[in-house]
């Protein structure tokens, strides 16, 4: 038990003193996963809206693929992105492997199916007559899309939470395409793995606490917005 208690005590000491490395890693996690969330929202909402509103052959298959993608193993995504970005790979000349950009790409691919799936569900829960009603009121196609997204804003917040949660907590892909380079591509999850492997449990615990706090804070903000809207 000493191991645990010492670890926790040391962790709070690190958090209390504001270790520079720790804050840098935290900030990088936030930036990388935040960017990935934004990209996944752009991709996921576009695809989600098409799947929710258009009727085309193979639509059911497409929705099934999206649902499968919601459980995509990060390691597999990491492997695919690593192969593409590898120096001798098809996108090698871009020189992105072992950069934060590579991690953003991988995390976007992990979060996008989740955002897509939540978008399909959110838009699917709107009344079927709403779109014709908006067109009848004189909406263009873009105006209609903008209005239905606003109308589904509460369930869409769930998509943001799920997307950010998946991006910030995955470790496999970030390790493979980022390489966990100190000062460059080290983020909270990869740093936890490294510390634990070395037997340095105190920093691992400290970083884990920060990771949990980060996810908690983001969800707290979004949930507060959601609840306040719902009550108004």
């Amino acid at each position: 038990m000493d191991l645990v208690w010492d670890g926790v005590r040391e962790a709070f000491r690190i958090l209390g003193t504001g270790d520079r490395d720790v804050w840098e890693i935290t900030l990088r996690s936030l930036l990388v996963s935040g960017s990935a969330t934004i990209f996944s929202l752009i991709i996921g909402i576009s695809i989600g809206a098409s799947l929710a509103f258009r009727r085309f052959p193979g639509r059911n298959l497409a929705v099934t693929l999206v649902n499968t993608g919601m459980g995509l193993p990060p390691v597999v995504v990491g492997l695919v992105v690593a192969l593409l970005l590898w120096r001798s790979g098809p996108l090698g000349p871009l020189g992105l492997i072992y950069t934060p950009a590579a991690m953003v790409i991988a995390q976007t691919l992990i979060a996008a199916p989740l955002v897509t799936g939540f978008t399909v569900a959110a838009l699917g829960s709107l009344p079927a007559g709403l779109r014709p009603q908006l067109y009848a009121l004189g909406a263009s196609r873009l105006q209609m899309l903008w209005l239905v997204l606003q109308e589904a804003r509460l369930p869409l917040l769930a998509a943001v939470m799920a997307g950010f949660g998946a991006a910030v907590s995955e470790v496999g892909a970030s390790l493979m395409v980022g390489g966990n380079l100190a000062g460059e591509t080290r983020v909270l999850t990869t740093a936890v793995v490294l510390s634990a492997q070395k037997g340095e449990f105190a920093p691992a615990i400290a970083l884990s606490i920060i990771l949990l706090l980060l996810i908690f804070l983001v969800n707290l903000v979004l949930t507060t917005v959601q609840q306040r809207e719902r009550q108004s």
């Binding site: 009344p127 007559g129 009603q133 009848a136 009121l137």
Partner: peptide, 9 residues
């Protein structure tokens, strides 16, 4: 034009 449907939506 304008339309009014059974459901106010």
């Amino acid at each position: 034009m304008a339309s009014v449907f059974q459901e106010p939506l």
